[in-house]
């Protein structure tokens, strides 16, 4: 069984952490993964940076720009991840935008993921229909899960379709928003989460966007198998004392 399936089978209240590869320093990518696993993260989403990240708020825009200025690109990222599986055992996803992936080549991308032990990817602007028509066989041949997003505005029919194409989990957006905003669980949000639960999907769900504190994390875990923390973690990283900044951030979530 693959690492993602095992995780969702064995654990609840899954804590997934997003960070940008090559930030704050170019060579920090694997060190951050190792420290996060030591501190109790269950799942990692490593962002490959893009110059025009339209789904992201200011924090991830800034980390992406810094990473690009530092010299990060996909070729270097896969080189950095070459020995990932010697020191990191939790599932790892790559997250980024479609254009860098297209320029690298989708097949090359999936093969490189499989070689270094990356379990899946999240590409918000890769449309479902293009994935289904052109890329699903390549992902499947390489054992790479493609994770889709669902928002409060996604129709039940479309959610069913996404469920059918998913192999791992579904990423529930707490609201239609760019990254880095606060989660306000209103009645509407609760109704939306309950609506998703009632669909009894084949894939488990985790909640992302707006999870910045222990309180919002716990709230999200009431409705899903876990939650994703991104901007709040990226913001807390300190270039000159990386390890300590990770440890103190993770203490609130995994005391």
């Amino acid at each position: 069984m693959n690492r993602i399936k095992t995780l969702f089978k064995e654990k609840k209240d899954i804590l997934s952490i997003y960070y940008t590869a090559g930030y704050p320093n170019l060579g920090d990518t694997v060190a951050i993964a190792e420290e996060l696993e030591r501190c109790g993260a269950d799942l990692l989403e490593i962002g490959f940076p893009y110059s025009d990240p339209v789904a992201d708020g200011p924090v991830i825009q800034a980390s992406s720009k810094q990473a690009l200025d530092n010299g990060m690109d996909l070729k270097l990222l896969f080189e950095q991840l070459k020995d990932l599986r010697k020191t990191v055992s939790i599932p790892v996803l790559l997250m980024g935008y479609v254009n860098p992936m297209l320029q690298f080549g989708v097949e090359n991308f999936c093969k490189a993921c499989a070689e270094v032990g990356v379990d899946g990817c999240i590409v918000p602007d890769l449309p479902m229909v293009e994935y289904e028509d052109l890329y699903a066989p390549i992902f499947e041949a390489n054992g790479i899960s493609n994770i889709f997003l669902v928002t409060p505005q996604t129709s039940p029919d479309r959610i069913r379709k996404i469920d059918g194409l998913s192999n791992g989990f579904i990423y529930l957006l707490s609201s239609s928003a760019t990254t880095g905003q606060h989660l306000n669980v209103s009645e509407d949000t609760e109704a939306y989460f309950s609506r998703i639960e009632a669909l009894k999907l084949n894939n488990p769900t985790i909640i992302g966007f707006g999870i910045s504190s222990r309180e919002t994390f716990d709230k999200a875990c009431k409705y899903a198998k876990g939650a994703i923390v991104g901007s709040a973690f990226v913001k807390s990283l300190k270039a000159d004392d990386l390890q300590l900044s990770i440890q103190s951030f993770m203490k609130t979530f995994r005391p």
Partner: peptide, 21 residues
């Protein structure tokens, strides 16, 4: 430019080898 994706459509755009605009 080269073929790629910018602002929601596949077209021709000025970009680096790594797909940065």
């Amino acid at each position: 430019g080269k073929e790629g994706v910018l602002h929601g459509s596949r077209s021709i755009l000025m970009q680096t080898h790594d797909g940065q605009v």
